[in-house]
Design a protein around this nucleic acid. Structure first.
Lengths: 204, 204
DNA sequence: CCTACCGATCGGTAGG
DNA sequence: CCTACCGATCGGTAGG
């Protein structure tokens, strides 16, 4: 970003997010961020109060967005199989559409101050709990068949990571197609779907 | 580690690995490492030549160990379903047994110098390629049924991460039990196993 | 928005 | 193995 674009709190935060994702929080200096938005480092403090505050703002916004997306995806959905499919699609789509934000969330929890870390970990745990509850419900009513719902929940939550690093490199599938495929993977992991039922049976 | 234990290259590298995993490479100072092994920072240079060299040594050794474990797991195995199961178990067991090394491998590639990064990425790609080849072979002979072997390979490779963060917290299952469960997840992801076939059908 | 500058900390070296 | 110290860089402030 050069000097021709006006600088604001959101441009500072967006530039910081890309740099934190690429270099890491600790390896990104306020001077790096300033250069990215086209000012000198002290001017950043007109928009943000500290480097730590920027990191927290990035992660808090990303967690809220992911939780809202999950809410929207599950609204009015009763069938537990469909709920797991849609929740996984929501998770993977979020990964694919906001790779920098998600990378920061996945790698910089340790860079948060104690109080900020507690707040972010609470939201992360809430997200994981909702995914786990879906899988536990599916197991209890016999829709899913897996030995450890907890292990399966962790496996499903982690699935999107592979898609994220891969998706950035190539362009063979759209983000929606990748998300749909991972939705199918999740159903297979919990034992909800026959292997012979191909994804192509689904409508577009 | 206190002064009563003798300091060597390997004790420096082991202490560095734990610190890099917990704090990150950039946030760990040579003084932190020195304190962990009970000397002053300049004395570390009697054992290692630079901080960067320590990072590379940790990652290179970890990659070689993972590749060797994969070799051992697959030796003499012809059946492609069994190969995927054993490869996944090998991967997950490595994650569970060497969490600090694996965390460093997963988070500090960006902290490597260009030449070191090329060497590590080549080994990581070789590992991923072997997993992908198993899945492609299974698909081509009809043992597996998945729309995108490449996507499935990434999903399987990523599976262990969830197990790693979870396993460190609790003690409900042994590492071997967790690895076996993930072996089953991998077969489900590629469509190799009926959902009705529970893991408990396997011998101990 | 800037220049000038602060105290702290960094990886690494000199010299013994 | 140590003390003493180097130039560089850090997040952030003073003052305008």
């Amino acid at each position: 970003m050069d000097g021709s674009t006006s600088v604001s709190r959101s441009t500072v935060i967006e530039a910081s997010c890309e740099l934190f994702a690429d270099l890491g929080y600790r390896s990104t200096s306020m001077r790096d961020i300033a250069q990215a938005v086209g000012v000198r480092a002290p001017s950043l403090y007109n928009h943000v109060s500290s480097k730590q505050e920027v990191l927290f703002a990035i992660m808090d916004k990303a967690m809220d967005r992911a939780l809202s997306a999950l809410d929207d995806a599950l609204e009015g959905v009763d069938d537990v199989t469909e709920a797991l499919r849609l929740a996984t699609q929501s998770l993977v789509l979020d990964f694919l559409r906001y790779p920098a934000e998600v990378t920061v969330c996945n790698t910089e929890v340790r860079s948060l101050d104690a109080a900020n870390r507690r707040a972010i970990v609470a939201k992360r745990d809430a997200y994981a709990a909702r995914m786990r509850e879906i899988i536990e419900r599916g197991c209890s009513i016999g829709a899913f068949s897996t030995r450890s719902p907890q292990l399966a929940a962790f496996a499903v939550l982690e699935l999107g990571n592979g898609a994220k690093s891969w998706f950035r490199a190539g362009g063979r599938y759209s983000d929606v197609e990748v998300a749909r495929e991972y939705g199918e993977f999740a159903l297979r992991v919990v034992g909800a779907v026959r292997a012979e039922q191909p994804l192509s049976a689904q409508p577009t």
